[in-house]
């Protein structure tokens, strides 16, 4: 049944290095997402006068994740920070800024990158999350992916990854990772257990960064099988990817 849905032409077999990079990006994306929601919870727990609005920008430091909440100023040359949540162990410590802290550097570039990406992405009829990850080669990745709106139901699909210039102003590449949205939900019958999930790709011949993120965030943790480009990829529960030829 699974084989019947795969079809498509065989492409060049992805390298170990290529799959390792997908795993690394997916892991970073999952960490970013977790840091963002834990930091949001920490800010809300301080009972702020107003809910944090605008953008949240996370970045990883040697000590852990730091998440800044704020918005671009009118001229777009500063990122104005209302709150900043800093990871300490398993908790996030919150600082508020009045007057707002004026950031340049990564927070400004990421905010502009998010603005460029969302403008290109357009409107949606469901909530989306956004994440910006710096690239070693300069520039950044900005991801737009559907947000989880129901506990225990994990959306995957209709997601895009942008590669942007280091100032966040120019789109270098737009990668539509998945076309339609799949909703992964646990079986209604609680006596049943889930061994794994699977889906096929029509847009690309390799697993995507958000496939790895799904495996790392989904509960219960189970592997995901992805059919793409004539190969069968298995994403293990730690995010590592293995590839096998499609059986003939």
């Amino acid at each position: 049944m699974l084989m019947a849905t795969l079809g498509g032409h065989a492409s060049t077999k992805p390298t170990v290095a290529e799959l390792a990079a997908i795993t690394a990006r997916g892991r970073m994306l999952a960490e970013y997402d977790a840091a963002a929601w834990q930091a949001t919870d920490a800010v809300m727990a301080t009972h702020p006068k107003s809910e944090p609005s605008g953008l949240y920008i996370a970045h990883q430091t040697e000590a852990g994740w730091v998440v800044a909440f704020g918005r671009l100023n009118g001229t777009g040359d500063r990122f104005l920070v209302d709150y900043e949540a800093t990871q300490e162990g398993t908790k996030f410590l919150v600082k508020s800024f009045d007057p707002k802290r004026e950031d340049m550097g990564w927070n400004l570039a990421a905010a502009k990158g998010m603005e460029t990406a969302t403008k290109d992405f357009g409107g949606t009829d469901r909530p989306y999350n956004i994440a910006a990850l710096p690239r070693t080669s300069g520039g950044m990745y900005v991801y737009l992916y559907p947000a989880q709106v129901k506990a225990g139901v994990y959306p995957l699909g209709a997601d895009v990854r942008y590669s942007l210039s280091s100032d966040g102003m120019k789109i270098v590449e737009k990668r539509q990772m998945h076309k339609t949205i799949l909703e992964y939900a646990p079986p209604a019958d609680r006596s049943e257990s889930v061994a794994g999930g699977y889906h096929t790709h029509v847009l690309s011949d390799i697993p995507e960064d958000t496939d790895v993120m799904l495996v790392l965030m989904r509960q219960p943790r189970v592997p995901e099988t992805v059919g793409a480009g004539g190969y069968i990829f298995t994403i293990a529960v730690d995010g590592t990817i293995t590839v096998a030829n499609q059986p003939k």
Partner: peptide, 22 residues
């Protein structure tokens, strides 16, 4: 080797790429 995204590597030998000794 220049591949997709971050799949760009300078390997000690060709065989290290061929056998993905990353």
């Amino acid at each position: 080797h220049i591949g997709r995204d971050e799949d760009v590597g300078l390997y000690l030998h060709r065989e290290d790429y061929d056998f993905q000794l990353t």
